[in-house]
Design a protein around this nucleic acid. Structure first.
Lengths: 277, 277
DNA sequence: ATGTAGTTGCATAATTTGCTGCATATATCC
DNA sequence: GGATATATGCAGCAAATTATGCAACTACAT
């Protein structure tokens, strides 16, 4: 595998060659069809540098490196074909393949069954609420956190609830407060109870869960149902993750003008505080 | 599509060229990487005949036909055919559909390019380490948390690092300590710096990131690269999520006997403490 | 049989692609 | 700040790949 080779030696490579190496590692399928000169053009270095990289990586010349890339791409093509053909019942698929395939089927399931109106409604509710609380516990905390993280870029009134603050927040809420519960099978009891309490106290409620008949749904005015078959004892969050992206983008869409300048502001402070590389 | 072109004209083609045409139509993925002479050799025909076929099919020359083949092959690789086909039918895809499709393509990309050896190696390293620290900040915190949450069911030595405890833990580590950094573009600076420091202090290091040439990879002994195209300003974690599932299952596989009784224990305490509904 | 049209392979020409020496630029070390 | 080492691009050269002219061959018709 050429990427491994590149990864190992990237540090010792001169800057120009390192650029080329990065391009090849990130776009092997593209690079496999290009000549040395064309790669050089893409990266912005001379043809010579590309050829010298091939040699620096230990190949006798550029054509040999290209052949190695071609071999890899051909391999990928054959596995792709196998995947496409009759569900290979004979071969034992690896753990990785099983997980990814399972999630692809979860995503296509979501494509068919997720209710776009509910998504829209939830996005609107989030934007319009005076306060929005997001609660997800145990594994669902990852989803709740993710949702909160991006929403809080644009909406300062969105808060992530922790175990410690659940009841204080709920008792402070009004009908203009939106409580979003996130939980998937096997539903965390506390999340359901919190949602129930929120509803009882007259807060607006929403649920992000696996079905419209989940225990959360009983106490939620808006239900975003994302079916998801578990793999082994884990119930995958791949599909929910994807739907959350749609939700975030939908929210951003609803405060577009505000969001754009907000992104610029953020960009500015990220640079200033050197948050990202 | 070149196969169609060949099919149409196969009847009018002289026998030698027809042979070549059949070969190309049946093995486009092979042919896309071969020179005219090599194709001639395979089919048992001279180089000239191959070139003449290209012209007979209406291309200005052989390179152009090869480029057409290459383009086709690249298309197959970039996304699953199915996704493409559905895409064409629906006119204006909604946000949700776009997000889900993008992620399906990310998953199929992962299916082709994720290095199973790296996955195995990382799982082994996690199980064997004396201490395992997982660090993911900002959006990647959701992934780090998720990974930690499940691993800690079986492996008490797995810890989730918070901003506050990074440096203390790193300075306490030995070569038997595994430091797992999780970061995706745009890479959080602190995560990269922590991984760098961990490596410098002699800890074992691993990275879960988007490519083998990501900034994290430079300081990681094991790199789990999960390519992922971003949607809008968000880079989706749907594919990484799925690969994490595979990683978790792989770890569980490696301590199978222990894991089973552990699950029973957990089941017991969950019931006792009424964690789930 | 003999001629004609069309196809093919070989040899060679033309073009493209890959490689290398040298001068310039850049970084590093003292 | 100067000297050494290294990296890069350019230009020219070598090698490969592609294109074509020509003669030989085949098939078919007269």
């Amino acid at each position: 595998m050429i990427q491994r080779l590149i990864q190992e030696r990237l540090g010792d490579l001169p800057p120009g060659q390192a650029e080329v190496a990065r391009f090849i590692a990130q776009n092997p399928q593209e690079a496999a069809f290009l000549t040395a000169a064309q790669i050089g053009l893409r990266v912005g270095v001379s043809e010579s540098t590309v050829i010298r990289l091939a040699m620096a990586l230990g190949y006798p010349g550029f054509p040999e490196m290209k052949a190695a890339l071609a071999g890899q791409v051909k391999d990928q093509l054959s596995t792709l074909e196998r995947l496409h053909r009759y569900d290979e019942s004979s071969v034992e698929p690896s753990l990785l393949r099983r997980a990814l395939r399972e999630d692809m089927s979860n995503l296509s399931g979501a494509l068919l069954s997720v209710d776009e109106e509910a998504l829209e409604a939830l996005a609107s509710a989030i934007v319009q609420a005076k306060e929005t609380y997001i609660l997800g516990l145990r594994s669902a905390h990852s989803l709740a956190y993710y949702l909160w993280f991006y929403l809080s870029w644009f909406l300062p009134h969105v808060q992530l609830l922790e175990r410690e603050t659940i009841w204080e927040r709920i008792t402070q809420g009004t009908s203009e407060t939106l409580f979003v519960g996130v939980s998937f099978p096997r539903y965390t009891r506390l999340t359901v109870e919190a949602l129930e309490a929120a509803r009882a106290k007259g807060l607006s409620t929403a649920a992000i869960t696996d079905s419209s008949v989940s225990p959360l749904a009983a106490y939620a005015q808006i239900v975003l149902a994302i079916p998801s078959k578990p793999i082994s004892f884990i119930d995958s969050f791949s599909a929910p993750m994807s739907v959350l992206n749609a939700l975030i983008l939908c929210v951003v869409e609803k405060c577009k003008d505000h969001a754009e300048e907000r992104l610029e502001e953020l960009e500015h402070i990220w640079r200033e505080r050197k948050i990202y590389l």
